[in-house]
Nucleic acid binder design. Structure first.
Lengths: 188, 188
DNA sequence: ACCTGAACACCGTTCAAGT
DNA sequence: ACCTGAACACCGTTCAAGT
């Protein structure tokens, strides 16, 4: 549908704010980034941010949407890569945004908007994992639970700052359990 | 060693504060409990709390220490219970304190004291799971990774508010994977 | 050693006023 | 519709002063 210049301007400004928020959230954390500071970065008065976003949580959701979208896009482009590379890439992605993941879990306790977004995002990510498992020949009727388990493990691994070595051990055991036989060398 | 009355008094007061903090944290959350409010509950001035605890994070650690201690104590008393009952009990315990678990993960990003306590507690809990796995005949050399995986899944299950039905599905699949054969009825 | 009243330096958010 | 300066109602924490 046709959008007016007004709407385009507004979208551009929103994007500019989200870009700055993403940077600051990743560098100083959500709680370490005051609306004051964000406003200064975008060169507006603090209260102007509220013209574009309902509250700070809406800003968090906006940032996370972009992060997850970018991740799923990159995943599409990597279709068909070797399993071990794929797992390592996913863990790396979670790792980069681990502080934001912890923040989302924390805010989801308080904000129903954050919780709603979190649940939807989880569903999308798990669907992708399920499809991946099926295409790899693990269609044994447990894909849904398996995908959820894998997402929990991925979150656990990054939340607990497991070392590379430990990540390898955990992933290898999981692969073994899922009978996705992978040669030890590939994951080391 | 002998403790003076002074020290006993001090310990009692500390316990009283921790008891109140535990109640308030569980009811209104960590961020939803101001030092002001806690002080009012204990009937002291807000700044008095700082005579007993370095900061709010120290209060969180104090509360969590009691929670984990109580949990491990209860676990000792339940030694030898059926596996499915044990798993369900553990998930229930995590469930009751899920908001505090999310808070610890969030604060661990910022406070090195919280992070240090968190790591120690995880180690203790995982040691218990490892011992349990061994006593159940899963000493295949992967107990350490398996215990860590189980703790991640437990955290994931409660953090994501999985339904009872889903918990059952996940636990059953995990048990199956670990070849800890358990009859389907027991977990339903 | 223990406790307090008052203040400090923030915080997210709102409001009345401008264009 | 968009933006602002100023204020509001908090927050965790500190400080000087009391006993």
């Amino acid at each position: 549908m046709a959008r007016t210049n007004r709407e385009l301007d507004r979208d551009q400004k929103r994007e500019e704010i989200l870009r700055a928020a993403r940077e600051l959230f990743l560098e100083h954390g959500y709680e370490g980034t005051s609306m004051q500071r964000l406003a200064a970065r975008v060169k507006v008065a603090p209260n102007t941010l509220y013209w574009y976003f309902a509250d700070k949580d809406a800003l968090l959701i906006g940032v996370m949407k972009r992060v997850v979208q970018a991740g799923l896009g990159e995943y599409e482009r990597r279709r068909g890569t070797a399993l071990d590379a794929q797992v390592r890439w996913m863990l790396g992605l979670f790792w980069e945004t681990r502080t934001l993941i912890a923040t989302v879990h924390n805010r989801a306790q308080v904000s129903s908007e954050v919780r709603a977004w979190h649940d939807t995002a989880h569903r999308m990510i798990e669907k992708a994992i399920e499809a991946e498992l099926r295409s790899r020949g693990l269609a044994n009727g447990h894909e849904v639970a398996a995908a959820r388990i894998m997402s929990f493990i991925a979150e656990g691994v990054v939340a607990h700052q497991s070392s590379k070595a430990e990540q390898t051990r955990i992933v290898r055991l999981l692969m073994h359990l899922l009978r996705l036989d992978v040669d030890d060398g590939a994951l080391r």
